[in-house]
Nucleic acid binder design. Structure first.
Lengths: 222, 222
DNA sequence: GTCTATATACAGATAGAC
DNA sequence: GTCTATCTGTATATAGAC
């Protein structure tokens, strides 16, 4: 803010700023997921990032601002995952890709999913504006696409909205409820093969009711 | 504990104890759901129950003990909801009833569902024993039933485990993500008619892939 | 049984040394 | 930019008056 000094070293400092910022964001995503917003103390986030807690405050000013950054990231990632849902694409293939991508994210970014779940469970006290400004219109657009597929006779006349909710619920379940799933898997995390089985099973269960009778390609997909 | 005194009034006191205990449990379920374990202070629970906070401590001793009671209740209710999953019952009818009951509970006991979700998201720091002692064997029993249905040729050869997870995920989504669903419903809670539509849509989506080709009765059910 | 007062710990955020 | 010291508030739990 009061810059001027150290102008010559700004390049190095900027890179350092970015590195530290990223470290904090990664740590924060995990700690917010595992302890909830209230239970995630700045000192715990700092300890997880390996820096003093006042450093966290210095880079993000407040706990809430840091939290919003974390939530915003997973929100953006999920939106990009739905790119395949477009009128020009084949419905079963597009929905299958969406499920695959969401399940890959459930495995690779489980903490982000958990933070989002926590926030919604608690009635979005901090990111309600995201829901109203962005999620709402985004969702309506996807529903319009799915309804167009129904109109065109490309899929069975299912409820587009509830199909979307079912895909969200099921794919995110494998992230949010990882601990329960692991416990029911004799305490060991799902293997690569089990994750592949999961993808196949989820697509089979959710898309068999969507595909037209006799249509194939639900399970057998790259 | 050091009883003896006031023996004649014990009947009245016991009834009062039960009343107050219930008030606290109802308040606690809501507050734990809306603020998470760490964010749910005893004073907030007490305020919600309309009593002084030391009273809450008197009846439940610790915040953790109170929390365990709350989690245990929803766990028991959900187990009872799966009574219909029994080899002697018709699969599609039984699974449809299970989905209906879970969705009814999503509407009537959303806070319990949220508390459970929160606890699992945070890796069951307090009720891990429930998962290992009770949930595990209970789940395996249900999977055995569904696999028997497959063996008997009563349903398609789906993955029993992932079907169960999909039912849990989808039905609980309507409780845990109520706020998101409400926001996407223009800010108003689902109406009676919309809840009926939800039941129909969820059963249609999840059970179309389970029923044998040409089998009906998935959607058309009392 | 009920409630006030309090002990002890830790939270978020800030001031200011370096 | 980084970190120590500290201010202020609130948490759980307990002691003990009534």
């Amino acid at each position: 803010m009061k810059s001027d000094v150290n102008k010559t070293t700004r390049g190095i400092q900027s890179r350092n700023r970015e590195e530290v910022t990223t470290r904090i964001l990664v740590a924060a995503e995990k700690v917010f997921a595992e302890f909830g917003y209230a239970g995630a103390s700045i000192s715990r986030i700092a300890a997880s990032a390996g820096i003093p807690k006042s450093n966290v405050v210095y880079y993000f000013e407040t706990k809430e601002a840091l939290y919003r950054r974390v939530v915003g990231e997973i929100f953006d990632i999920w939106r990009a995952a739905a790119d395949s849902i477009s009128v020009d694409n084949d419905p079963i293939r597009a929905l299958g890709e969406y499920i695959d991508t969401k399940l890959d994210l459930a495995r690779t970014r489980p903490y982000g999913s958990k933070v989002w779940a926590n926030e919604i469970i608690q009635r979005a006290p901090i990111v309600q504006d995201y829901l109203e400004d962005e999620l709402r219109s985004w969702t309506e657009n996807r529903i319009t696409v799915i309804e167009a597929w129904v109109q065109n006779g490309q899929i069975r006349p299912i409820s587009a909205r509830h199909l979307l909710y079912a895909i969200w619920a099921t794919t995110q379940h494998y992230a949010d409820f990882t601990h329960q799933i692991t416990t029911l898997n004799d305490g060991v995390e799902l293997s690569d093969a089990q994750w592949e089985d999961t993808k196949t099973a989820v697509k089979d269960l959710l898309l068999s009711g969507v595909a037209l009778p006799g249509q194939d390609g639900v399970v057998t997909d790259g």
